[in-house]
Amino acid sequence: AMEMGLACVVCRQMMVASGNQLVECQECHNLYHRDCHKPQVTDKEANDPRLVWYCARCT
């Protein structure tokens, strides 16, 4: 999947907007926009540098 680069696995886009940054699952290393992931990634989750985030598939 490395050839995908830094794109969201849901929408396949790399564009990021304020409040909709890409977050990386620490287990599978897929990237998700906060708005694309279900459930939506919260501000607290996205902005906490100590948080280890896992996508819905890996939790």
Rank of each mutant, 00 (worst) to 15 (best):
C28R: 01
M15E: 08
Y54D: 05
L22I: 10
K38L: 07
Y54E: 09
D43M: 09
C28M: 01
N30C: 13
M2Q: 09
P39M: 04
V23L: 12
L31P: 05
Q26G: 14
V10M: 06
M14D: 15
A17K: 13
R50M: 11
M4G: 10
V41W: 03
M14I: 13
V9D: 04
D48W: 06
C58F: 00
P39C: 14
C28P: 01
K44R: 10
E27S: 12
C11R: 00
N30Q: 13
W53H: 03
N30V: 06
D48G: 08
C28A: 02
C25M: 01
V9S: 07
L51A: 14
W53Y: 03
L51V: 12
V16A: 14
D48Y: 05
H29C: 05
H29Y: 05
A1Y: 05
R57K: 11
W53C: 02
P49C: 03
Y54P: 02
R50Y: 08
V23F: 11
S18W: 03
E24R: 07
D48K: 11
Q21E: 09
E24L: 02
C36W: 01
R50L: 09
C8I: 00
E24I: 02
C55K: 01
H33Y: 01
V41A: 04
E45I: 04
K44G: 13
A17Q: 15
K44C: 14
E3T: 06
A17L: 05
A17T: 09
A7Q: 08
L6R: 08
H33A: 02
D35I: 08
E24G: 03
L6Q: 13
D35N: 09
L22A: 14
R34P: 15
V52H: 10
D43P: 07
Q21H: 12
K38R: 11
V52R: 10
A56F: 03
N20G: 09
W53Q: 04
V52I: 07
A46M: 04
K38W: 03
D43C: 08
G19C: 08
C55M: 00
V23R: 05
T42P: 14
A46N: 08
E3M: 04
N47R: 08
Q13M: 06
K38Q: 11
V52T: 13
M2T: 15
M15F: 09
D35G: 12
C11E: 01
A17I: 07
R34L: 14
V10I: 10
G5M: 06
L6C: 09
A1T: 15
M14S: 15
N47Q: 08
R34Q: 15
S18I: 06
L22F: 13
R57A: 11
N20T: 11
C55T: 00
C58W: 00
P39V: 03
Y32Q: 03
H37C: 06
E27Q: 07
Y54F: 15
L6I: 12
Q21A: 11
Y54S: 14
M4V: 12
V23G: 02
C11I: 00
E45V: 10
R34G: 15
Q40W: 07
M14A: 14
V41M: 07
N30W: 08
E24V: 03
E45G: 04
C8P: 01
K44V: 10
K38A: 12
D43H: 06
N20F: 05
P39L: 03
V23K: 05
R50C: 07
S18M: 08
D35E: 15
P39W: 02
C55F: 00
D35F: 07
M4W: 02
E27Y: 04
Q40A: 12
Q13N: 11
K44E: 14
V10S: 02
M2P: 03
G5Y: 03
A7L: 09
S18K: 12
V41N: 02
N47G: 13
M2C: 07
H37S: 08
H29G: 11
C25A: 01
K44N: 15
V16N: 13
R12W: 02
M15H: 15
L6N: 15
A1Q: 14
E24T: 05
Q21P: 09
Q13G: 05
D48H: 08
E45L: 10
W53E: 07
V41S: 04
V16G: 14
N47W: 06
A17G: 07
M2R: 09
P49K: 12
A17Y: 08
M4T: 14
D35H: 15
A56P: 05
Q13S: 10
E3H: 05
N20S: 10
H37M: 13
V16M: 12
W53L: 03
D43S: 08
M14Y: 13
V16H: 14
R12N: 12
V10H: 05
L51F: 10
E24A: 06
C11H: 01
K38N: 04
P49H: 06
V10T: 02
Y32W: 14
M4P: 11
G19I: 06
V9C: 14
M15L: 11
Y32R: 03
N47C: 11
E45Q: 11
S18Q: 12
A56S: 09
R12E: 12
A46H: 05
M15I: 13
G5N: 14
Y54T: 15
N30S: 09
N47H: 12
C58D: 01
V52P: 13
S18F: 06
V23T: 05
H37Y: 04
C11D: 01
R12D: 14
C8L: 00
A46V: 12
Q40C: 15
V23S: 04
H33P: 01
H33T: 00
C36P: 02
H33G: 01
R12T: 09
V52D: 13
A56N: 04
H33F: 00
T42S: 11
V10Q: 05
G19Y: 05
V52A: 13
C36V: 01
K44T: 14
A46Q: 08
C55P: 00
P49V: 08
C8N: 01
D35W: 08
R12H: 11
L31S: 14
M2L: 12
C8V: 00
M14R: 15
L31G: 10
P49R: 11
Y54W: 04
L51K: 15
M2W: 05
Q40I: 13
V10R: 02
C55R: 01
R12G: 13
C8Q: 01
R12K: 14
P39S: 04
V16T: 14
G5K: 15
Q26K: 10
M4R: 13
V23H: 08
T59I: 07
V52E: 10
P39I: 05
Q26V: 09
L51S: 14
